[in-house]
């Protein structure tokens, strides 16, 4: 177990180092997030729709679109000099490679979210006071959901023609449950609705996380050459 986690950690550190030195993907994702947040603010009739009404949707569209900019990066990096072979030659379990890649992507998306949230609060004039723990739970659960599926799909997408185009086409249908759930939860939490109104969606997110994390880890090996 310690060996397994050690390998996962080594991959995460390696990916983070590479990302830190290049910063291209991260900067693009952050700039993309700022652009989406501001465009969505203006994509409404200000006399009819208050910015508060569209805020939860805007936040989640921003998170997922910005994540999509970065998700392919993890496996494109391995394609560069066929570096993935270097990992596959070692006796490291295949699932550890996937979990490492997925954890790297979680960190990546997590940092993009960390930067987007203050801007969201600023742009949409929302108050998060007292709601942070709940919002954090929603964000964590929905992010795990789409990063798990997204990491697996990107492992395939980078090896097809039109790789950049393929990931959104494959991934977006899978974003419907977690993103709709996250938007519903976010708006209810921001409106300070009772916890009983949140449970159904929380259960949906939890079930999605469990099912798709397990599936993604199990199916990763089938995406490797053999």
């Amino acid at each position: 177990m310690r060996d397994y986690l050690g390998v996962v950690w080594a991959i995460v550190v390696k990916d983070a180092t590479v990302e830190w030195r290049t910063k291209t993907a991260f900067m693009s994702a952050v700039v993309f997030a700022i652009l989406v947040l501001s465009i969505l603010y203006f994509a409404r009739d200000p006399t009819a729709v208050s910015s508060m009404d569209i805020a939860p949707g805007a936040l989640w569209v921003t998170f997922t679109f910005a994540a999509m900019v970065g998700l392919n990066r993890a496996f494109l990096l391995e394609r560069e000099n066929q570096a993935i072979d270097g990992m596959l030659l070692t006796p490291v379990p295949r699932t550890a490679i996937f979990v490492g890649k997925m954890t790297g992507n979680l960190l990546f998306v997590g940092f993009v979210e960390l930067i987007s949230v203050p801007l969201f609060v600023l742009f949409y004039n929302v108050s998060l006071a007292g709601r942070l723990p709940q919002l954090l739970a929603v964000t964590a659960m929905a992010t795990v959901a789409f990063v798990a599926v997204g990491t697996l799909l990107s492992a395939m997408a980078v090896r097809t023609r039109f790789a950049e185009l393929m990931l959104p086409i494959l991934l977006l249908p899978f974003l419907i449950p977690p993103v709709v759930g996250a938007v519903q939860l976010t708006s209810r939490i921001l409106a300070a609705r009772p916890a009983s109104e949140l449970m159904g969606w929380f259960k949906l997110l939890a079930a999605f996380d469990i099912v798709f994390c397990v599936l993604a880890i199990l199916l990763y090996e089938a995406t490797l050459d053999e």
């Binding site: 590479v18 030195r21 990096l77 000099n81 066929q82 072979d85």
Partner: peptide, 11 residues
């Protein structure tokens, strides 16, 4: 030792 170096350029 393959055709590709299997190295990460940024490291």
């Amino acid at each position: 030792v393959a055709h590709n170096s299997m190295a990460y350029d940024a490291l």
